[in-house]
Amino acid sequence: MRHVFGVRVGPVAFRIGSAWRAPVEQLRTLYRDYPAHDGVPDFTVRLEAARPWRRFVRPSVHIRGDFVIPDAAPLPLAQGLLAAEMGMNLQMALGQRRFLLLHAAAVERDGRAVIMTGESGAGKSTLAALLQARGWRLMADEFVLVEPATGLVHPFPRPVSLKNAAIDVARAALPDALWGPLMRDTPKGAIRHLVPGAAALAGAETPAEPVLLLFPRYGLPAEQRPVGAGEAFVRLTQASTNYVGLGERGFTALTRLVTDVTRAAIDYPDTDSAAELIEALW
């Protein structure tokens, strides 16, 4: 392909090919502190025009790669970076088989990890990003990788995709952070990518032992309740895109995870209350 970018995020290597220069240049900026990768990738993503001449006329970016869904709608070229990020997410969601993949965020301190999961909009990405300002290492904001053989959580510190009001909140809390371009009018409103801090990138190959599993909900008065292992198991199978694909390895990893960790549902009105709840359960 005309423009190529290779990068390693934690244990996963991507190769991204693009028909246009702009998305690749944006990727180079956003990922400038990540290790480059020009060997054999785990996943290939292609950003293509529907027809050769559509590279110039009303260009729209089609997301292709090793794993695709047939009805993925194309994006305008101005959102090419978002297309690349979605393409990488899609490869992980459909193709990851080395780790049990949980749709969740994770932070770490002293080698011990907190996994936070919940429906989109529960605020887990934002919470994980903001906890960096309070001394936590960001391990993942979207996909938590659990290694079946050891039960350890491996980092996957992608740039955090923040939306709408969360963008300004994070800019105030993390004034020195590196950001991608602001993309307005995406299918999900305004989106901007926040590059994880130095600790997250330096520790991108350092796994941690999961000790706490949280089901956070943002926007409610601070409260917590315990969650049974069975409920946690069911909710995590629903939050995993590859649980079935992993077969018995997935079963072993997930039953072990929910049995070994402390489990709680927390409601929180702001980051400070969430941090206090987490530090109390820790």
């Binding site: 069975g230 946690a232 198991f233 018995e248 079963f251 929910v258 049995t259």
Partner: peptide, 22 residues
């Protein structure tokens, strides 16, 4: 079968099918 008791329920992994039953 692989059987894992999880507090209120039991998870049963069926090796022949790869299906988890609760």
């Amino acid at each position: 079968l692989v059987i894992a008791p999880l507090d209120e329920i039991v998870a049963v992994f069926h090796r022949a099918s790869g299906i988890t039953h609760l």
